[in-house]
Design a protein around this nucleic acid. Structure first.
Lengths: 199, 199
DNA sequence: GCAACAATGTAGGCGGTGACAACAATGTCG
DNA sequence: CGACATTGTTGTCACCGCCTACATTGTTGC
């Protein structure tokens, strides 16, 4: 029989919650159900997460850390050229976003809510990475000139929108790579020599 | 005292639900609370909506109808030129999406779920409108060539993404018009003569 | 070594919810 | 006017999040 103290309850909760989130979405996630799965009493989670929202925030936080890791890995693998790096980033972002739709929604939805300071902080690195990529693209003249903020926002919005459309079933997941490529082409300026995949 | 039969309960529920959705989001919407507001018993809504989800679907349905109306009105006001019409559509879409964020989320989230056939049908006109606009743009050579489906999806995704970013607080609502313009510029090909608003 | 204390888990209860069933009032139509 | 469908009501169930009081275990200072 299990010991009185679980010992790793916080970790166990996060793992179970992550799975539940992926399988059934944030709405369906129930603290009591997680407790049952793990085999502790229904009030035990309270010791580690004062309320349901704080558990969701914790998930969003780790989500941003994972996103940052994956984006950096993608850039590292992409070689030196700007366009390949941009393409790799866009693809990696959309892949992350569609691999765990509910997590992405949680990450985005959490940022503007009160009490989510830690989530905002956790989102920093990933956003910085993408920001730098855009600023660099403009400096190198690969992206359209103009207000860097606006161009960057629109470009980020495009990635985000593609992810949303795949997640909601409006677009087949198989189109992911093609759409990422199309998006990159739209935003790359200058001669479209080798970057185009045929048209 | 009120009569035994309310008489307009279905309509009253939809109105109250719409307001609740706008003010507090779909998650917070409670059938019992709506019933209390209207002044009927907690089980009365069941006669008109078998469960909570079906009420949400109904809201999504009317949402698509309203979206279609607003898009057509925007196009009609925009005059003859292609670029002004495109800009008007993009702006109108984002305005609709940010005016009632929770409704948009509901409309999008409902489409791919089982039992939402009516929602899918209701979304037809608005999507057709945008589709035609894109096809026309390609025919007139104002949009990039290439697979029309892909270009259209990416463009739609950009609108959707901008709306999401405003809704989640990542972008100030005041930037709406500028971002819509920036997006249009990105997708318009050829000489950017009069369409640019300065840069 | 042990007493005080902090950390962590348990038991029970409160008000809320959606879903369901049985019943009551009202409208409709042969 | 009586049968029937429609629409509300009451009551109940299981579930949820949150809270309080209590039990067990780990830690630390004397």
């Amino acid at each position: 029989m299990p010991p009185y103290h679980h010992g790793q309850l916080r970790t166990a909760l996060l793992e179970a919650a992550e799975r539940s989130l992926r399988e059934s979405g944030a709405e369906q996630l129930s603290l009591r159900e997680l407790a049952r799965e793990i085999g502790v009493s229904h009030a035990a989670p309270r010791r580690h997460f004062p309320d349901r929202q704080s558990l969701l925030y914790a998930l969003a936080e780790t989500g941003f850390a994972r996103l940052d890791t994956q984006l950096r890995a993608a850039v590292a693998e992409a070689g030196e050229g700007y366009v390949p790096q941009l393409r790799a980033t866009v693809t990696a972002y959309i892949r992350f976003a569609t691999d765990d739709a509910a997590l992405l929604e949680l990450m985005f939805g959490s940022k503007h809510r009160p009490g989510a300071e830690r989530v905002v902080a956790a989102s920093g690195p990933a956003f910085t990475l993408m920001d730098e990529l855009i600023v660099r693209g403009q400096a190198e003249g690969r992206l359209a000139a103009g207000d860097p903020e606006r161009i960057g926002i629109v470009m980020f919005a495009t990635m985000q929108g593609i992810a949303t459309m795949i997640n909601t079933g409006l677009v087949r997941p198989g189109l992911l790579d093609d759409l990422a490529e199309t998006a990159v082409e739209q935003f790359i300026s200058g001669p479209r020599e080798s970057s185009a995949r045929s048209g």
